[in-house]
């Protein structure tokens, strides 16, 4: 599937994904964007070539004394080889909306396959949190048509991938496959006129900065701690 996205991951994020150095939650959201975006797929295969050059160039030839190489080779070549790859098209989970279904990119389909528990938040927002690691908070977000998220800023960074519908904030209007990155400096207020399904990854809690919504702050932090400590054991 190819969609012309206007907003893409940063070069550092793409590089981290190609190298495998990111937290699982960040890997998942980038993977989902890459699946939808031909431009980023091209970049990834160039970055993987570059990472493999670097790997071979910079790694010392540490010989592991503990490895019995010929025994290992013998045990490997006893295995049958795989002649055709049929792992491509297993189940393709969808998220069912009121009047239509949204087909998810592969990595997100896997994330959602265990079932999502939706919670209603203020302002017409529904949220289903998923735990992928202990460094990020990941969630599907559904914004009802006409909904608005309270003004907030982030302590770390927040990545939002649009899956269906669209949303807008002070800086732009975001459509499916768009990958929106907000850092600690940005304060923004997303709203959605037509309704929007997103997947969001936070590497630290949100802080609401305006009005009554500020009352939510302790709860948000609590929720974040809960989500991350659940991953820790």
């Amino acid at each position: 599937m190819n969609i012309d996205a206007k907003y893409h991951p940063t070069p550092e994020q793409l590089e981290g994904y190609a190298e495998g150095s990111l937290a699982p939650g960040m890997n998942v959201v980038i993977s989902a964007h890459v699946e939808l975006c031909a431009t980023c797929r091209q970049s990834i295969s160039e970055l993987e070539e570059a990472a493999s050059e670097e790997w071979l160039r910079s790694t010392p030839d540490t010989r592991a004394s503990s490895i019995n190489f010929s025994a290992m080779i013998d045990s490997i070549v006893d295995h049958p080889q795989i002649k055709n790859d049929d792992t491509t098209s297993d189940n393709v989970p969808e998220i069912h909306m009121l009047d239509h279904s949204v087909t998810l990119p592969r990595a997100l389909a896997k994330v959602a396959s265990d079932g999502l528990v939706w919670k209603q938040l203020a302002g017409g927002i529904n949220q289903a949190t998923v735990t992928l690691d202990d460094q990020t908070q990941c969630e599907f977000l559904y914004m009802k048509p006409g909904s608005q998220v309270p003004v907030h800023k982030h302590q770390g960074s927040e990545v939002t991938l649009v899956l269906d519908g669209s949303f807008e904030d002070e800086l732009g209007h975001y459509k499916p496959a768009d990958f929106v990155v907000r850092t600690a400096k940005d304060q923004h207020q997303p709203a959605s006129e037509e309704g929007c399904l997103c997947f969001a990854v936070l590497d630290s809690p949100l802080t609401f900065t305006k009005g009554l919504a500020r009352l939510l702050n302790p709860f948000i932090r609590y929720r974040f701690r809960r989500a991350t400590s659940a991953a820790a054991h």
Binding site: S31, T87, T88, K110, V130
Partner: peptide, 16 residues
């Protein structure tokens, strides 16, 4: 970490 997603979900098929 939770076993929800494996590498093969994140990087579809080794260079496919």
């Amino acid at each position: 970490q939770p076993a929800t997603v494996s590498a093969d979900d994140i990087w579809p098929q080794e260079g496919d």
